[in-house]
Nucleic acid binder design. Structure first.
Length: 261
DNA sequence: AATTTTCACAACCGCCACGCC
DNA sequence: AGGCGTGGCGGTTGTGAAAAT
């Protein structure tokens, strides 16, 4: 016998797609009267031709009172970034620290605002490694008559312009006998020391983790610490390195214990 | 002005964990 | 002990609006 994973078996004829105002009204009225939970029976009892799962999602993400509408504020963005650096894609966990925001909203926000940047910084890291290797090779072989030119490419100028916060270089390795053989681009902060030497200052994390007693959390915040490491300094260090990775060492984005505006 | 690209958001899907019987 | 229903989570997709070309 096939076990139904998760929700109830999809019934033929159940409505899908966007909710109508009538459906919203029915669901709201029913939940206000009977409370949340028992979503399958909510669907039936409220006269909705929807799956329980769909009802729950609609309520949680859209109809539930107290939900904020509109754009994520810079403060909220800062919290999202910091918490994501700590917990990764634990959207529901992150959402608990943003009253009025849903996991879905945060997830969507992250995807549209940071995925692109994350991808970009991965590229940067690869390039950085390549350039270091080449520079090393040149040091090891000082007699080599290759020429290393450092300049900013149009592409990177554009990227830098968009992000407004990166320094970029292209290194052109020219073998004098064979002409130009390689061109690489590296993007990195003005000074890595600028990133790494920043002393983590008091932040909201201090408030949550100390004031709220979250160091002793038994819930998943605790479990989500890599290696179950429950020590403030190490978590801040994790956040630091996570930031460094996310933004490719972009000094203006490196976590310094505060918000990023 | 028309077309293409990007963004923002809503909704669905598959999976897992847990409790009840 | 194991089947089943339910609640919840994270990933993905679809779509309309806005911005860019």
């Amino acid at each position: 016998m096939v076990r139904m994973m998760g929700w109830e078996a999809p019934k033929i004829g159940l409505r899908k797609g966007p909710w109508t105002p009538q459906e919203d009204m029915l669901l709201t009225e029913y939940v206000n009267l009977h409370g949340e939970g028992r979503w399958s029976s909510v669907a039936k009892s409220a006269g909705l031709n929807r799956s329980g799962k769909s009802c729950r999602l609609r309520w949680v993400n859209y109809l539930r009172p107290g939900l904020k509408r509109g754009h994520i504020t810079p403060q909220e963005e800062g919290i999202i970034i910091e918490l994501h650096a700590l917990w990764g894609n634990k959207w529901s966990t992150i959402a608990r620290y943003l009253p009025g925001r849903t996991d879905n909203e945060i997830k969507n926000y992250w995807r549209t605002h940071f995925k692109k940047r994350e991808k970009f910084s991965l590229k940067q890291q690869k390039r950085k490694a390549q350039i270091l290797k080449l520079k090393q090779q040149q040091q090891e072989k000082p007699d080599r008559k290759d020429e290393i030119k450092i300049h900013q490419t149009e592409e990177e100028e554009e990227e830098a312009g968009v992000n407004g916060k990166v320094n970029s270089e292209a290194v052109e390795i020219t073998d004098q006998s064979q002409g130009k053989v390689q061109e690489m681009v590296s993007v990195y902060p003005i000074s890595e020391d600028q990133c790494l030497s920043q002393e983590p200052a008091a932040s909201w994390i201090d408030q949550y983790l100390v004031d709220e007693g979250l160091w002793n959390l038994e819930d998943d915040h605790h479990r989500h610490q890599p290696g179950n490491c429950c020590n403030k300094t190490s978590i801040q260090n994790q956040a630091n390195s996570a930031y460094y990775n996310y933004f490719g060492g972009d000094a203006s984005y490196v976590y310094n214990g505060g918000y990023i505006f």
